[in-house]
């Protein structure tokens, strides 16, 4: 465990808390892509199947359970909550997210640490997580104004993987750990946020409302 890793996981957790606070206090999921949230449920279920096969960890296990529970809760709110579901921008959430799943599955089938059920699903979840933000970014681009909580949510969600990159660099030098699959996927994942980061920081410095061109 190093500071980058701890900070990364806390940032990830904070992003989810921000989203839940937004949904619960404003009773609105405006600006949030249900397709991205669906993909996260799939990501966590396929990655954390090892909850059943690996020994419990005082650090990892609670995080895994929280990520699973919160992602399912968010999707539940967006689909079924009487008030919240009416605020969902269905017509702007146009990204064909199913088209992300098949290429990730094919990639995981061929590129994995070990050709076993758990390892292929793990690889699938790493690839799918890298691109899961795309529907959300497309939705934000079509929004004329992005509320603070939504902007902060997406920022924290992107910052988390960027902090993992620092953690991986640290571990490479300090612990000799080499893991190509999450490294390359994490790099792609962070790169997809580049544009968003740019406009987020710009609007923050100019004290303006966030808007993507």
């Amino acid at each position: 465990m190093n500071a980058f890793r701890l900070l990364a996981d806390l940032t990830h957790l904070l992003s989810i808390i921000i989203l839940l606070v937004k949904i619960r206090t404003t009773k609105s999921c405006a600006g949030i892509s249900l397709k991205t949230q669906d993909l996260y449920v799939l990501v966590f279920i396929s990655r954390y199947l090892d909850l059943f096969t690996r020994p419990l960890s005082l650090y990892n296990t609670p995080f895994k359970l929280v990520f699973l529970a919160t992602s399912i809760t968010i999707v539940y709110y967006m689909r079924y909550h009487k008030v919240v579901k009416q605020t969902y921008n269905k017509d702007s959430d146009t990204f064909k997210h199913y088209f992300l799943i098949l290429p990730c599955a094919v990639l995981a089938f061929f590129i994995n640490p070990k050709f076993t059920f758990i390892e292929v699903l793990w690889s699938f979840s790493i690839y799918l997580e890298a691109v899961a933000i795309l529907p959300q970014l497309v939705l934000l681009q079509s929004s004329s104004n992005i509320d603070n909580l939504t902007g902060n949510y997406v920022f924290m969600l992107g910052a988390y993987r960027a902090l993992y990159l620092l953690n991986w660099i640290y571990r490479f030098f300090a612990e000799d750990v080499v893991r190509w699959i999450p490294w390359i996927a994490g790099l792609v994942q962070t790169a997809l946020y580049a544009d968003f980061f740019y406009y987020y920081i710009k609007s923050w410095r100019n004290n303006e409302r966030l808007k993507l061109p």
């Binding site: 890793r5 996981d9 080499v178 190509w180 999450p182």
Partner: peptide, 10 residues
């Protein structure tokens, strides 16, 4: 560099 596979991350 051979890939060491340790799944101790989230």
């Amino acid at each position: 560099v051979p890939s060491k596979h340790v799944k101790d991350e989230l």
